[in-house]
């Protein structure tokens, strides 16, 4: 029981804080420390009554990459507003927008920005939406930690090693013939996620697509490597071969042992993958994660508004990193909150 009530107290506090942030809106809150602490109790009491009383149903569909974030936020929100029922599914960003623009969902998770064609579809159906940036997904490119020959790869290297023209590339040096890179001669073992995964999509989109288009190829990886849905399997594959290469989501890569995270050069020099470089968009293989909110529904439903309020505060602070993505910088968070409030 004590455990439970302390959890509750914590959540009230979190809620109170978040509402303070919301109340302060765009104004800089750092200079009013004393006022803030004194007023937070009142705000918390008022707000808690309000939020815990809202009722309603929220349905979220869309990207399977963002799905865990939204699920986690919904779980946290459930403790704050037990009468709001949030269901989440994750068929994919494109599927989600189809539903969203048909008015079937309140929120659409997306691992990319909405396409012009999709936005037109929404407009035609009279659906207005707000885009909210919630986090960043970085992709770590790795080799075995016994491999000292290489520390940094360019997009060109990666294209030559795993791109659509590399079905017959069996040695690192074979890739040189494709994009004129200068890689050493060593056997090449590739491990990566399968096509169903958001990580695969992002990798192709960011690393492969531009070069593939230039060279008149499909935007896809080579088909001659064995993909896995299980990140652990990918990691143990990379560990198992001295001259392996592979890629998984950054959070997973960062905690792994026996592998070496490679720096990546996206045209502006080698950048090592850290939470900071990803949050600041310096590291080239990263993508933004969004949620899109149906504005009409938000205007009609206090529950949906409360949920988004919660999402842009506690969600951004806790859920994003818990699920394994990179949190926004404080400045970016403030911007997101301001945009939602505005």
């Amino acid at each position: 029981m004590t455990d439970r009530s302390s959890k509750w107290r914590l959540l009230w506090a979190v809620l109170a804080m978040s509402l303070v942030v919301v109340a302060c809106g765009g104004t800089d809150s750092a200079d009013t420390d004393a006022d803030e602490t004194s007023s937070s109790d009142d705000v918390a009491n008022d707000a808690s009554v309000e939020t815990s009383d809202v009722e309603g149903q929220i349905f979220i569909s869309g990207s399977s990459t963002v799905e865990p974030v939204s699920v986690r936020v919904a779980e946290l929100f459930e403790d704050v507003a037990p009468d709001v029922f949030v269901d989440v599914e994750g068929p994919g960003t494109g599927d989600g927008f189809k539903k969203f623009c048909a008015g079937e969902t309140d929120i659409s998770n997306a691992s990319r920005e909405i396409k012009a064609s999709e936005a037109e579809e929404c407009a035609a159906a009279g659906i207005e939406f707000t885009e909210i940036l919630v986090g960043i997904d970085g992709i770590g490119v790795m080799t075995s930690d016994r491999n000292s020959a290489i520390d940094c790869v360019t997009f060109g290297d990666l294209y030559g090693l795993v791109g659509p023209e590399s079905d017959d590339v069996e040695s690192w040096a074979d890739a040189n013939a494709i994009t004129g890179t200068d890689l050493p001669d060593a056997p090449l073992d590739i491990f990566g996620p399968g096509e169903e995964s958001g990580t695969y999509d992002s990798f192709v989109e960011i690393v492969i697509e531009d070069l593939a288009e230039e060279r008149g190829q499909d935007a896809a990886t080579r088909s001659t490597y064995s993909p896995s849905a299980d990140d652990n399997v990918i990691l143990s594959g990379i560990q198992s071969s001295d001259t392996s290469i592979g890629w998984v989501g950054f959070a997973f890569a960062d905690n792994a042992t026996g592998v070496k995270l490679l720096d990546v050069d996206g045209g502006e020099g080698c950048v090592s993958a850290t939470a900071e470089t990803i949050a600041s968009n310096d590291y080239p293989i990263s993508r933004n994660l969004y949620i899109y909110v149906n504005e009409t529904n938000a205007a009609d439903s206090p529950a949906l508004r409360a949920f988004i309020d919660f999402y842009v505060t506690t969600g951004l602070d806790e859920a994003v990193s818990e699920v394994g993505y990179v949190e926004l910088t404080d400045a970016a968070k403030a911007e997101v909150i301001a945009a939602w409030q505005g």
Binding site: P91, G92, D95
Partner: peptide, 21 residues
């Protein structure tokens, strides 16, 4: 690894009632 006809159908439709592509 591979998909049979049945598994291909099931994995395309998992977790949603909305199959678009």
């Amino acid at each position: 690894g591979g998909l049979t006809m049945t598994a291909g159908m099931a994995s395309l439709a998992t977790g949603t009632d909305n199959v678009v592509g």
